[in-house]
């Protein structure tokens, strides 16, 4: 499967598990999206523990303009109060609409799990057809301990009461994926 087919399949499959998928031009547009969504949902902050350098400077300034607090570390202290978790995915898997996130860092795990809304940015060229296409990379990551590798496909869900599918039981209540045309600003 070529790249455009992978992207189209990823979008279709991710949407089928209630993920909101949007294609944006680059990081700056993604930051705007994250800020807008947080404000719309009444969130007070954005946790972005893995954003660095000039990207962080830009995000900080947008957050400041909009009166949102930017959280970058010690997220354990913020559990229960994180509005948006903004993270970068390592890969996307088209076949199942899955994000692959290497999150050995505790803060990154908390941002992806204990925020009310998780926004994951995914560079377009990082979308592969299926797990088989990533097997070598994934196996290598697992062999580099310590490793905490997450496949995320949609928002947290349960069907444990009368098989009624209900979103947001433990993890984020919403998952947004922003496919980045370019992974720079």
């Amino acid at each position: 499967m070529g790249q455009p087919e992978n992207v189209a399949k990823f979008i279709e499959r991710a949407r089928s598990v209630q993920t909101t998928v949007t294609v944006v031009s680059g990081l700056a547009a993604a930051f705007d999206y994250a800020v807008d969504l947080t404000l719309k949902q009444g969130g007070k902050n954005i946790a972005a523990p893995a954003i660095r350098g000039e990207n962080l400077v830009l995000l900080e300034s947008i957050c400041q303009k909009n009166n949102l607090m930017l959280l970058t570390r010690n997220l354990r202290e913020q559990i229960g109060m994180i509005g948006t978790g903004l993270t970068m995915a390592d890969w996307g898997i088209a076949q199942t609409g899955t994000l692959v996130v290497n999150c050995e860092s505790e803060d990154l795990r908390i941002a992806t799990m204990l925020s009310e809304t998780h926004i994951a940015m995914l560079p377009k060229y990082r979308i592969e057809a299926d797990t088989a296409a990533l097997e070598v990379e994934l196996a290598a990551m697992m062999k580099t301990a310590p490793c905490y590798l997450a496949f995320i496909s949609g928002a947290s869900r349960t069907a444990d009461i009368e098989r009624v599918m209900t979103i947001g039981v433990h993890g984020p209540q919403e998952l947004h994926v922003l496919i980045l045309e370019e992974d720079g600003l």
Binding site: V17, Y148, F151, S153
Partner: peptide, 10 residues
């Protein structure tokens, strides 16, 4: 097709 979370820990 896949469950929401698959977690691999080493």
């Amino acid at each position: 097709l896949i469950s929401t979370y698959v977690t691999w820990i080493t």
